[in-house]
């Protein structure tokens, strides 16, 4: 009989590579969702009219924000998925403990966030091109704002970080549901309650404050700090909750 020593680092990396292979289908569902979002974003999001001399002006603004939103939802749902029984127990066929499992899940979600962020921004270009070819050239004016390549790069980083926060949130929700099924009911109720109560408070409602805290941040570095700290806290909370979870019960 020979006993083998393994390190946490080794196992986390092995699990991470394993997950990239075994959870590969999450990227297929991302493709499906982004394509659905692409179909949805054909409608203009904003219409503005005005009267100039001899002109009845209408300006329609189109954006692929829907793709971003759908990518967030994808991130949220898939993070929940990887906390479900089937996925959690996969790991226990191989070498694992709950710590390495959690770390490798986190690495996987970070990777998924980057992939989600990059593809979401790129689908935006596909959307723009499709729009260009399907719109009357006389009415097509192009990008209303000057966007530099640096802005796009910043956008990719920001989108990935948003996606990461949604992954973290989904992961936490998934973990809580794994603790007790009753939370599948309680969590939506809490969210609705929060929005209702938030809407009745004095001044700016809490949910809007949260929204403005992230979406209203125009400094890239501060945004990175906010989103990374948020994600890290949520992941830490998830790990704390799941550290004693039994499997194959």
């Amino acid at each position: 009989m020979s006993l083998n020593k393994v390190t946490t680092r080794q196992i986390v990396m092995k699990q991470y590579q394993y997950k990239l292979k075994a959870y590969y289908q999450v990227f297929n569902s991302m493709v499906i969702l982004q394509v659905i979002a692409l179909l949805f974003s054909t409608g203009g999001i904003m219409f503005r009219g005005g009267r100039g001399f001899g002109l009845d002006i209408s300006l329609n603004t189109y954006t692929a924000d829907m793709i971003i939103i759908f990518t967030f939802l994808w991130a949220f749902i898939n993070a929940i998925t990887i906390t479900t029984k089937a996925y959690r127990e996969d790991d226990f066929i191989f070498v694992t403990n709950r710590q390495t499992q959690h770390l490798s899940n986190m690495l996987f979600l970070i990777t998924a966030s980057v992939i989600g962020g990059v593809t979401a921004v790129l689908v935006g270009y596909l959307n723009d091109i499709i729009f260009f070819f399907t719109t009357d050239p006389k009415t097509f004016a192009g990008y209303s704002e000057l966007i530099t390549p640096f802005d796009v790069l910043t956008g990719v980083v920001a989108t990935s970080l948003y996606v990461l926060m949604f992954c973290a949130a989904g992961y936490l929700v998934g973990v809580i549901i794994q603790l007790n099924r009753i939370f599948t009911v309680i969590i939506p109720v809490l969210i609705i309650g929060f929005l209702i109560v938030g809407g009745q408070t004095e001044g700016i409602p809490v949910n809007v404050r949260i929204y403005l805290f992230y979406v209203g941040e125009t400094d890239v570095l501060l945004f990175m700090l906010k989103s990374l700290v948020t994600s890290a806290l949520i992941f830490a909370g998830s790990f704390f909750l799941l550290r004693n979870k039994e499997v194959r019960v």
Binding site: L59, Y62, T63, I68, V121, T135, Y143, L146, I147, G155
Partner: peptide, 15 residues
């Protein structure tokens, strides 16, 4: 009638 494109909000947010 004029149609314009806007990049997605995480890009506009900083630009």
């Amino acid at each position: 009638n004029i149609s314009v494109l806007q990049k997605e909000f995480p890009i506009r947010q900083f630009a």
